[in-house]
Simulated scan of single mutants.
Amino acid sequence: MDRPTRWTRATVYPDMWVDPADDPRNSDGVSPDGELPTLVDYLGRYRATLLMKCDDLDAEQLARRSVPPSTLSLLGLVRHLAEVERDWRGWITPGAVPPRLYGSADGDFEGAAPDPSLVARAFADLAREQAATDTALAAHPDPGERLGADGIAVRELQVHRIEEYARHCGHADLLRECIDGRVGQ
C-alpha cells in the first residue's frame, strides 16, 4: 500500500497543523466567561478544525473512503455533521422532525461522491444547519433549561455537540493523513 509522506505546514512546532500565528482557532486574551460561552467556544474550535482538515482538497480526495467496508470519508463527515445539526434541532423544537437531508439513515456517507457540486452543497448544508441550530439555541441562554419533548438540557445538547465534532475530528485526522500525509493537531 502506498503511503503519503507525512508533512505539515507548521514551522514553529512540527506536530501542529499550522503555525500558531496562522491558526484561525487561536484567539487573543482569556477564555470566555461563563459556562455557555465556554461551550460555544469549544464547539467553534472543533468546527474550525474539521474545516481545516478538509482545506485544499479536491472532490475526489474529500470523497475518498477510508478502508473497506467503511464508507467513512471527509465529505461523508461534513454531510453527517450537517445531518446531525438538523437532527439536534428536532430534539428541541416543537413540531415535526425535519426531513433528512440525504435520504436514508446512511445517505450522508453512502452518497458522498467525488462530484464538485455535491461537495459545494455539503459545505453549504453544514454552514446553514450549524447557523440554524446556533440560532435556535441562542434563544435559550440558561444552560439548565430543558427543551423539547424529552426535556434535554441546553448544557447536555451543547456537550453532545462538542463530543460529536471532537470524535469526528479524530476521524478527520486519520482520513487526511491517508489522503496526502498531512498531520497535526
Rank of each mutant, 00 (worst) to 15 (best):
A149L: 07
A139M: 02
L74V: 01
W88G: 01
A113S: 11
D28K: 08
R100P: 11
D173P: 05
W91M: 15
L118V: 08
R161S: 10
L137W: 08
W7L: 00
D19N: 13
A63F: 08
A96H: 03
A82K: 06
T5P: 01
G151N: 08
Y13T: 14
D150S: 11
A105Q: 07
I179W: 02
R182Q: 15
P141G: 03
D134H: 14
L72S: 05
R79M: 09
P14D: 15
G76N: 06
G76W: 09
E177V: 02
V67N: 08
V78K: 09
D87H: 12
Q158G: 10
Y165C: 05
H168M: 10
Y42S: 11
R89S: 07
L175G: 04
E85W: 05
A10T: 03
A96W: 01
L36I: 10
G170W: 01
T133Q: 12
R121Q: 15
E156M: 07
R100Q: 13
A138S: 13
H168P: 08
T71N: 09
E145I: 04
V183W: 08
V18R: 13
N26S: 11
A120L: 05
E145T: 08
A153D: 02
G170Q: 02
R176E: 13
G95N: 05
Y13R: 15
R176W: 15
W88I: 08
T93H: 07
D15L: 11
A127V: 06
A172Q: 05
A136M: 00
D19L: 06
D125I: 04
